[in-house]
Computed example of a mutant assay.
Amino acid sequence: MKCAIITGGSRGIGRAICIKLAEEKNYHILINYTSNETAAKETLAKVEELGSTGEILKFDVGNAEETQKVLSEWQDNNPKAIVEVIVNNAGITRDGLFMWMPSEDWNSVINTSLNGFYNVTNFFIQKLLRNKYGRIINMVSVSGVKGTAGQTNYSAAKGALVGVTKALAQEVAKRNITVNAVAPGFIKTDMTQDFNEDELKAMIPANRFGEAEEVADLVAFLASKKSSYITGEIININGGIYS
């Protein structure tokens, strides 16, 4: 059984990625979520509607012990399963000006995005290397590439993932494992629902917010065999806002 794991897969871009990979029917879809079980079940139902298979894994990617425990139990229960695709999508925002930012807001954002990447990817990396095949896709952000005022913590977390992507890509390329990052701009999701779209789209050359499905199309390409000579790349998908 070949599998793809999507962290933060219950809603938004994560859900769109689960659905897109399910459409292609190459993988059993592992949908990770932390708190919204209803949303995770809805995503699984959509995956199954498409004739694909999947399951839900509840753990907080930022909690090393919990991640290790849940993934180890899953692996023990599915000894023949091989995870080929890892999409590190889980992330949170705690926006605010740096001068007033409590350490808790700094640490929680970095822990989820950056340590979450380590906890999940490190669990699978030796298996990918033995298998001599893999696709690791890190969801970053325009904030991690150019920096965004009011998001020093999020920009730091995503900027660190940019560095990780470039470094790890060089370590594992010989084993047919690619590591790339996707950097969305303003995409219509729960995370951006409070933004003033009319005001912000004036800044975007494409004059609109992106759709989660458009990001999912790019991720699905990077998760496929078609992208085998692309690695260590940060691909912006933002309607030209940062070009």
Rank of each mutant, 00 (worst) to 15 (best):
T7H: 07
G14R: 07
E104C: 03
S35C: 04
E66C: 07
A39F: 11
G12L: 06
S103L: 14
G14D: 03
K41L: 13
L30M: 06
K69G: 00
P102T: 06
N63F: 10
A22F: 05
E66V: 13
E84G: 01
L30V: 00
A40N: 01
V70G: 04
G14V: 12
C3K: 12
Y27W: 13
S10E: 06
V47C: 12
S72R: 06
A40F: 02
T67W: 03
Y27M: 05
V70R: 08
G8L: 06
V61R: 02
G91Q: 07
R11Y: 06
N89Q: 08
H28S: 07
F98R: 00
G14F: 10
E65T: 14
I29M: 00
N26M: 11
E23G: 10
N63M: 04
L97G: 12
I82E: 13
A64N: 05
I92R: 10
D76V: 09
D76W: 01
S10F: 07
E73M: 12
L50H: 02
K20I: 03
V87H: 08
L50Y: 00
T34P: 00
Q68Y: 09
T7R: 00
D95E: 05
Q68E: 15
L97Y: 13
F59I: 09
E66D: 11
A45C: 11
G9A: 07
T53F: 08
R11E: 11
G14M: 10
A45G: 11
N63V: 11
G12S: 08
L21M: 06
L97F: 15
L30N: 02
I86W: 00
V61N: 04
Q75K: 13
I82L: 13
V47S: 06
V47Q: 06
G8Y: 12
V85A: 03
E49N: 14
N78P: 03
A45L: 14
D60G: 13
A4V: 01
G54W: 12
S10L: 05
N78C: 01
W100C: 07
H28P: 06
A40W: 01
S52P: 06
T7E: 04
I86M: 10
S52Q: 05
T7W: 02
W100Q: 13
S35K: 14
T93D: 10
C18T: 10
N63Y: 03
I86V: 13
G91K: 09
L57S: 06
S103T: 07
